[in-house]
Write a protein that binds this DNA or RNA. Structure first.
Ligand SMILES: [Zn+2]
Ligand SMILES: [Zn+2]
Ligand SMILES: [Zn+2]
Ligand SMILES: [Zn+2]
Lengths: 169, 169
DNA sequence: AACAAGAATGTTATTTTGTAACATTCTTGT
DNA sequence: ACAAGAATGTTACAAAATAACATTCTTGTT
């Protein structure tokens, strides 16, 4: 996987619905490929997560699902999240207890995030170099790496410029 | 700050009480230096966190404090944790919701962690290279870094060898 | 179509983690 | 002694996640 910047969460006015469609298509085909079922809740959960420009909390998602007639008990949403996570379709941002659609689900990877403290927009970035360095670093301690949580916070360029405090909410 | 491996949490049988004393001394002098008060709860909280070989949850800590006659309401422990965190005397491991003593509180830094999935031992490591790379990487996106959450999980060497599943608990 | 097995969802209750808000007490400088 | 701010006590609650068990939905097989 090459370096990329996932700008679906930036303040740009691109047609986000394209991203969403793309993500859902990818999800459909990945699930088909692996014999997994992208059921109604799961699909809708994924879509709702994508529709949010910033990471969505489990209970925020649950509320949205409930509005639409889905069951409104926590296990519903946590099961959907678990499925989407294990399918690599979303990431969890540990430091926010929130979930984010992944635009590169077809290429298994660790999510590295840049999180703006001001507008809460999140940019996923890929940096193979860092990944390699971390693996090596761990190896020198005899440590065998499994998962990586890399979440950087700070100020995005828009918020530094006082643009409009983070663009579209 | 140079590279180091904080092995106070490893399975080695070193005299951990030395680490604790050291940490408390550092804490005392740092607080004095900055005109902050290392009160009884705060001091004891720090000590208890250090006495645990693995990251300690807020409510685990609260229970221990309560046993010793301290107030047993959540705010007590969260206030102590907040103080210790902001003083740089402990780190929070986001992916575990748990807290860990820092052996290098005198040199302000971000906590980078290697967490064993098996024995839950945590090793703090420093890697100035990574820090620099991340800052640069963020900068190329116009992003100004503030905090870094870097938590790697996997298997420590002991657990790979099936040593004794993580040493002392 | 009938059936069985496993996957997915429904339901209820509880646990774990973390805060808000306001009252009281302690510390320090005057 | 006094005032101001820091720290702690207290009560209540919010937010995030899971346990356990019942029910329903799918899918392949007979
Ligand atoms: Zn991703
Ligand atoms: Zn921003
Ligand atoms: Zn540290
Ligand atoms: Zn281990």
């Amino acid at each position: 996987m090459t370096e990329h910047s996932n700008d679906h969460t930036s303040q740009s006015e691109h047609n986000h619905s394209h991203c969403i469609e793309q993500a859902l298509e990818t999800a459909e085909s990945l699930c088909a490929e692996h014999g997994q079922r992208l059921t109604k809740v799961r699909r809708r959960a994924l879509e709702l997560i994508w529709q949010s420009h910033r990471p969505l909390g489990a209970y925020q998602l649950l509320a949205k699902l409930a509005e639409e007639g889905f069951n409104s008990a926590p296990p519903t949403v946590y099961r959907a999240l678990e499925f989407l996570l294990s399918a690599g379709l979303i990431h969890k941002v540990e430091s926010m207890n929130a979930y984010l659609g992944c635009a590169h689900a077809d290429k298994p990877h660790k999510g590295y995030f840049l999180i703006c403290d001001e507008c809460q927009n999140v940019m996923e970035f890929d940096y193979q170099d860092i990944h390699k360095i971390l693996i090596d670093k761990a190896a020198t301690q005899g440590f065998q790496l499994r998962s990586e949580t890399i979440e950087l916070t700070g100020l995005c360029s828009s918020c530094q410029n006082g643009d409009d405090e983070g663009g579209c909410k």
